[in-house]
C-alpha cells in the first residue's frame, strides 16, 4: 500500500517534560491507524504537531513525500491534511451547508477569491451536500451550526473533513463527549469512512478502536511502546503494563 503520511523521529518537550519522544509512524492509503495510550501519553500533542498547531523540536513529517514539518496549519490543510478537534469545532454562525462548502472552497484554494458569490459555488455546494449525506446530515443543511446538538456537531466536523477530499485525516477523539446513545451511530459513520482518506485515529473508546483500526500504535509517556496489528497489540505485555488498572 502507498504511504501517504510519514512521521519520523518526532520529539517535543515542554520545559523538562517530554511530550513526544522519537515518535515514528506511517499512514498508508485507505487504512485506519489508531493511536492509543493512557491519559497524558501525548496523543493530542502528536496530532497538533502533525496538523501544525504545535511545531516539533526535532523530527520530520511528510505528506505524500512532501516535507511539511514546518508548514503552517492552513498550508497543510490545503495540501490535503484534514483534522477534527477533541472539543467540537465548527463555525457556529454559518449554516451547516456553509460550513462544508467553505471547507471545499478552502481545500481547492478558492477561499481567498474576492469575487463570485460563495453561496452560488455549485461544485462546493454539491460536494458539501454529498458529504452531509454520507454523514446522515442532509436534512440539517439549512440549520445554523451553532444550534446543532453535540453529536450533530461531531457529524458536521466529520462531514467538513471528508468534503475536503483529504489525503489524510486526523481524528482527535471523535467520540469524546458523545452520549451513550450517540456512540454506536458515530462508530457506524466512521466505519463508513473507511477506504476513503487514510485516517489517523486517536480515541479512548477501545470498542471503537478495535472495531475500526487496521493498525494500532500505542503511546506511553510520549514514546511508542508498541505498534502493529490489533490482535498483536492486544496481547503485548508492555501495553498491558502501561494500561495497568485501566479497562483494556
Amino acid at each position: 500500500m502507498a504511504e501517504v503520511l510519514h512521521v519520523e523521529g518526532l520529539s517535543k518537550t515542554f520545559g523538562a517534560l517530554w511530550v513526544t519522544r522519537e515518535v515514528s509512524l506511517t499512514l498508508a492509503a485507505g487504512e485506519v491507524h489508531a493511536v492509543i495510550g493512557p491519559n497524558g501519553a501525548g496523543k493530542t500533542t502528536l496530532i497538533h504537531q502533525i496538523s501544525g498547531v504545535v511545531l516539533p523540536d526535532r523530527g520530520r513529517i511528510s505528506l505524500r513525500g512532501r516535507d511539511i514539518t514546518r508548514a503552517r496549519p492552513e498550508a497543510r490543510a490545503r495540501a490535503g491534511l484534514a483534522r477534527s478537534f477533541q472539543i467540537t469545532s465548527v463555525l457556529p454562525e454559518f449554516s451547516v451547508l456553509e460550513n462544508v462548502a467553505l471547507s471545499v472552497q478552502a481545500r481547492e484554494g478558492r477561499a481567498m477569491r474576492p469575487w463570485g458569490r460563495a453561496a452560488a459555488d455549485r461544485e462546493a455546494n454539491a460536494r458539501g451536500m454529498a458529504a452531509l449525506e454520507r454523514m446522515a446530515m442532509a436534512d440539517r443543511a439549512r440549520r445554523l451550526a451553532g444550534t446543532l446538538s453535540h453529536g450533530e456537531k461531531r457529524q458536521l466536523e466529520l462531514a467538513m473533513a471528508i468534503a475536503a477530499d483529504p489525503v489524510a485525516l486526523l481524528l482527535d477523539e471523535p467520540l469524546a463527549g458523545a452520549g451513550p446513545e450517540e456512540v454506536p451511530r458515530l462508530i457506524e459513520l466512521l466505519r463508513g469512512m473507511k477506504g476513503g482518506a487514510a485516517i489517523l485515529l486517536v480515541e479512548h473508546d477501545m470498542e471503537a478502536v478495535f472495531a475500526l483500526a487496521d493498525r494500532i500504535t500505542v503511546l506511553a509517556e510520549g514514546r511508542v511502546i508498541a505498534s502493529g496489528q490489533p490482535d498483536a497489540v492486544r496481547a503485548d505485555e508492555a501495553v498491558r503494563a502501561a494500561y495497568l488498572g485501566e479497562d483494556f
Binding site: 496538523s51 498547531v53 503552517r72 496549519p73 492552513e74 498550508a75 490543510a77 490545503r78 484534514a82 483534522r83 478537534f85 469545532s89 465548527v90 463555525l91 457556529p92 454562525e93 454559518f94 456553509e98 467553505l102 471547507s103 472552497q105 478552502a106 481545500r107 484554494g109 478558492r110 477561499a111 481567498m112 477569491r113 474576492p114 469575487w115 463570485g116 458569490r117 460563495a118 459555488d121 467538513m160 475536503a164
Partner: peptide, 22 residues
C-alpha cells in the same frame, strides 16, 4: 464572496478556519 466568508469564519473560530486551509 468566498473571501468574505473566510474573513467571517476566522472571526468565529480561527483554529477551525485554519484547519480548513484558510
Amino acid at each position: 464572496t468566498p473571501f468574505g466568508r473566510s474573513l467571517v469564519a476566522l472571526r468565529q473560530n480561527e483554529q477551525r478556519a485554519r484547519a480548513m486551509g484558510i
